[in-house]
Structure formats: C-alpha cells, structure tokens
Amino acid sequence: MIVLVDTLCSVAFYCQRCGQIEIADVPVFSGHGDVVLTCSHCGAEKARLRLVPRKGLVIETGCVVCGQRNRVHYPLRQLRTMTLEKIYCEKDHFELGYIGKWQALAEFLDFNAAEYDALHPHDAYNFMEHQQILLEAFNRVHDLAEEGELFCPCGGHEFTADIAEDAIHLECTRCGSSAVIPAKTPDDLKQLQPGCEVAFLRPDLIRNR
C-alpha cells in the first residue's frame, strides 16, 4: 500500500497581535510562492512559509518585542524526524511558537495549560490566555503611544518596552523614567484605554528605593 503524505509537519504560532495560538499543518507545496498563515481570530499574519530547494522549509515571522522579522529554516531530513521544537526570536529569545508533529504540539499545549492551572490555581485563566493577555497588552500600549495617548511626566512620548512575566515595562527615552503596566488579567486589559493614567518613576527614585 502506498501512503500519500500531504503535509511536511505542523506549526503553532502565537499571534503577535491578539496572542491566540492554533495548530496548522504545513502543506507539501511546490513552486516558490509563500504560504501565509493568518490568525483565525483577528486576521493578522502569523508567519510566511516557503519550501526552498536544497535548503528545506524557511519560516519568517515577526516579533512584537523587538519589532523585527525572524527567519529560521529546517532541512527536510530534520522535519521527517522532528517531534517538537520551540521557535524563538533571534534577538530577545521571546517564544514565538512551535514546530513538529501535530499530536506532539497538541499534547504540549494542553500540558502547558494544565501545568499553569496547577501552579496558579487562583488565577481565572490558563497558560494560553496568559500569553494572549501579554501580547494584547503590549500591542495596546504600542497603539496608545502611537496615538499620542501615552506621556511621561517629563513630556516625552517615546518609550522602549519589554514584556515581563505578567507586565509591560516601559522606559522613557527622554528622561529614563520607567513604569510597570500590569498585564496579568482581563481586568488589566480593560485599563489600557485612551485616557488611562500610567505612573512613571524617575531614575533617581528607583535607585533610592
């Protein structure tokens, strides 16, 4: 019996806009065109896939933390034996998604959600929702800054931003003052609206704490 294989592997990427994650099969495709994976929740592009002769599968995906696009490639022989691997941002090592066999990805995501719930029994959200809240909060902060709704007391309106475990850390590029914006629960997201107040601490106050 001949078994026809129509997929190379499966991938699961966090949407860099809303944080949703879902598993998608990578098709066996010919030619040099890209296969674009989009988020079924918000429609944002998650990744671009291309099969390059003698190189294998090339994946391009963005990262909201560093603002750059990442490119990774996997030889076909590696894909045939791969069970599961994590895909990270090349610059800041932020976790972007996973690649491997569909069943392995599904079990891994289910395990992570269950493990998070076990470690945080009083939280009303699981591991996947936690990632979604972080990414959505990061994008809301970015939108507020772009729309002129986010200001430092010094008058500055340009910031560097980093994602922590359950918060967004901002630093004013003008005076160095910093702020920590909670991004742990859905209620934290509700606070990130036009007109919201963000408490900044001056560098000298941080050193003296």
Rank of each mutant, 00 (worst) to 15 (best):
R50F: 00
R71D: 00
N70L: 08
Q16R: 14
E45G: 06
Q20L: 07
V11Y: 01
H41W: 06
C66E: 08
K86F: 04
H32C: 06
V28M: 10
V36G: 00
L51S: 10
H73A: 09
L51E: 03
I23P: 02
L8V: 07
L96H: 04
V28D: 01
V58M: 11
I87T: 05
A12W: 03
S10T: 04
Y14M: 04
G31E: 01
G56S: 07
F29Y: 03
C9D: 09
P75Y: 07
C89H: 10
Y14K: 05
A24Q: 15
S30H: 13
V28N: 02
G67T: 09
Y14N: 07
Y14H: 15
E60L: 12
C15R: 07
E90C: 08
T81P: 00
R54L: 08
S10E: 04
V36M: 11
G31S: 05
A44G: 12
Y98R: 09
H93A: 14
Q78G: 00
E22C: 06
G56N: 06
L96M: 13
R77M: 05
E95M: 13
L84C: 05
C42W: 08
L79Q: 03
R50S: 12
R80W: 01
R69G: 07
I99V: 15
V35F: 14
G33F: 05
C66G: 07
G97E: 07
R50Q: 15
A24Y: 08
I99D: 02
R69V: 11
T38Y: 02
I23M: 09
H93S: 13
G62D: 13
R71Y: 00
L76S: 02
D34G: 00
Y98K: 05
D25F: 02
P53W: 04
T38S: 14
H73G: 00
C18G: 06
V65A: 13
G62T: 11
G56C: 06
F94R: 10
Q16N: 13
H93Y: 13
I21D: 04
P27M: 07
E85Y: 01
G62C: 07
L37R: 10
V72R: 11
G19C: 03
R80P: 00
H93V: 12
D25A: 15
R17C: 09
L84M: 10
M82F: 02
A24D: 12
Q16M: 15
R17T: 13
V72Q: 10
G67C: 10
S30P: 00
E60V: 12
C9A: 15
S40R: 15
T61K: 04
N70D: 15
V52K: 11
K46N: 14
S40F: 05
K91S: 11
S10N: 06
G43P: 05
C63H: 04
Q16S: 12
D92I: 06
V64K: 09
D25Y: 02
K86Q: 14
F94D: 08
K55F: 03
Y88G: 00
R50A: 11
C63L: 07
